[in-house]
Each structure stands twice: as C-alpha cells, then as structure tokens.
Computed example of a mutant assay.
Amino acid sequence: MSELLTVENLRAGYGEAIVLEGVSFTLAAGDSLALLGRNGVGKTTLINTLVGATRYRGGRIGLNGTDITGYRSDRRATAGIGWVPQERNVFKSLTVEENLTAVARPGRWGVQQVFEMFPRLAERRRNMGNQLSGGEQQMLAVGRALMLNPKLILLDEPLEGLAPIIVEELLAALRRITREEGLSAIIVEQNARKLLPITDQVVVLERGRIVHTAQSADLRDDPSRLEAWLAVSDAAD
C-alpha cells in the first residue's frame, strides 16, 4: 500500500516550550495507528500538530504525497484530515443534523450513513448539541469528522469518561471505520487493550519522542512490553 501520511523529524510545542522532539513515522493508506503512552508524553500535542494547532518548530508533514507542513488548519481539513478533539467541540446551538450538514463534503459519508452507524443520533436528530449526553456528543463529534469525508481521521481519547455501554458502541463504530471501511486513522487512547484489536500498528511516545513501534497484534500478545511501556498489567483488562 502507498504511504498516506509521512511525518519527518517533527518538532513542535506551545509558546516557547518544545514538546515533540524529532518525531518520525509513516502510515499507509487504509492502515490505522494506535498512539500510546503515559499521560503528558505528547500524544495530544502530536494530534494537534497534525491538524495545525501548535507552534511548529521543524520537520515535515506529508499527506497523500503533498507537503502540508505550512497549511493552516482549515486547509489541512480540506486536504483530507478529519479531527475528533478531546473537547468534542460540537456546535451546541445547532441540532444534531445541522452539526453534520454544516461541515459536509462530498463522498462516502453522508447524514444517513452517520445515522446508520449511530442510531442514537438519528433518534435525536432535532435535538440541540447542548441537549446531548457526553456519549452522544462524542458520537456526534465522530460523525461530524466523517462528514468531511477525510483521507485520515484523528481521534484524541474518544472513549474517555464514557459509560461502558457507550464505550462498546463507539468501539464498534471505530472497528467498522478502521476494519470494514478501511479509513486511515490515528487514535489516542489510555486503554491500550481496547484499542490494539482495531488498529494495525502502534507508536509509543515518551517525553515527546517515539520510543517503540510495533504491529498492534504483536504488542497485544506481549504483556511484558505492554507493562514496560505503558504500565499496563493483566489486571487492567
């Protein structure tokens, strides 16, 4: 498969602080990547840098053969990057359906496809964004990113703080996105054991640097490495 995303020697941060130092990796078209690491190691900063929301200090970002390093955030979205931030950022004064159609671009994903994936949203299509539960807002944030019909979708801790039943619904949706639809994705998640079965490869960050890369299946089947890199033990299942 051809390379969709190329990150070369990326350096970035906030203000005068440099958080990422020399980050390099590639992602093939149709592949998905689990971005793992303990809290505060630079995972969200890397996601934010890919969408153009940090202070760039050096390196290169290529998307589908185009150098997008100097692109603004809106131009990166147009180039094919969809983003589901931790804050969700749904439009609270718009209905569910208006949230989706406000950002729609032509392609595979439309309102009906999103409603098929998330029946809860179909039931609440006329509810305002501020009338949704946290889990429903997260579903809406994912659906809205899909409505951009991106080449690559970035999800920053999409399961954080949600009820177990909502977590399972979102995991099923993410599995469909990465496995059945073949949409390239980078997903940040604290619970590695939930994420590894639905991704192809893993990048582990530590203090803003990549310290380990592997196939997801290999890391999933190696509890000692999970514990070493992520402080995950069998008891964490």
Rank of each mutant, 00 (worst) to 15 (best):
I68F: 06
S73G: 07
G82I: 02
G80V: 02
R72F: 13
G65N: 07
T78K: 08
K92H: 10
G62I: 12
S93V: 10
G80C: 07
D74H: 14
N89V: 02
W83S: 08
R75I: 15
R88K: 13
R75Q: 15
Y71C: 03
Y71A: 06
K92S: 13
R75S: 13
G70K: 02
G80W: 07
I81K: 04
I61D: 02
V84P: 02
D67C: 04
G82K: 01
G65S: 05
S93M: 10
E87W: 03
S93L: 10
Q86I: 04
R72H: 15
I81N: 06
G70I: 02
G80Q: 07
G82M: 00
L63N: 00
R76F: 15
R88F: 05
T69N: 02
L63A: 04
Y71H: 09
V84T: 01
G65R: 11
T69P: 02
T69H: 07
Q86L: 05
G70Y: 02
G65I: 12
W83L: 12
L63R: 05
N64C: 00
G65E: 00
T78R: 11
T78A: 13
A77G: 01
S73P: 06
R75M: 14
S93K: 14
G62M: 12
R75H: 14
P85K: 04
D74V: 04
R88I: 09
P85Y: 08
T66D: 06
N64S: 12
I81V: 15
G62R: 06
R60F: 05
R75D: 15
N89S: 11
